[in-house]
Amino acid sequence: MNFTLKIWRQKDAKSAGKFVEYPIKNISPDTSFLEMLDILNNELIQKGEEPVAFDHDCREGICGMCSLHINGHAHGPSQAVTTCQMYMRKFKDGDTITIEPWRSAAFPVIRDLVVNRGAYDQILQAGGFVSVRTNSVPDGNAIPIPKADADESMDAAACIGCGACAATCKNGSAMLFVAARVSSLAKLPQGRVEGARRAKAMVAKMDELGFGNCTNTGACEAECPKAISIAHIARLNREFLSAKLKD
């Protein structure tokens, strides 16, 4: 298969970027999207050009390192998969594929398609944990948890922190990410203890870092590679508002 790639190139955070077009030929439909970029880079290096920088690591859809806004979609046009799990057979021969980095004020571009997602770490540092010390814990079975609650907590905990939600949201809102963590812990008795403090601290940090306001469009859920539901956002709203009303 042959494609025209229209890729965002940007030397570093301070430089201005631009799109550059690259033709690429003889790609097997079984090639993954990132392997296609590997092939392009290998060709570029051999031609004496600088390869395209992009984030990736596990290539099994779980580490959350890969990103890319492909033809207008975070993680490409496929549903509920990360970029690394997408294969070229999803595209038509001869397609022009536009590849952009995440665009969000809180995710500044580092180089080409690589952005800084440190803001997500900072939000979790604000309260995305249970304050438990190593070894100061009861027996695992001392805390029974209804199966449905554990399952729902796990649904939210599937978040890989890739940033697609904020990147795809027209408001640049990180609510789905924050909600996934708050909701996952809110469904468990271990997490309930600090529930109010957590919701307030994480939302405050999210706002401070310049993420936008959620307007319930649901685009985050549609583009989330783990299909995390906005029902968790409703729970975050509930947690936050009830915490604030008690203050």
Partner: peptide, 22 residues
Amino acid sequence: NLIIDQCVAQGVPFAREYGGLL
């Protein structure tokens, strides 16, 4: 055994049986 206790306390959503136990 301590690992399981530790992780449960951290809020790791391990699979549960209907009785609520691990």
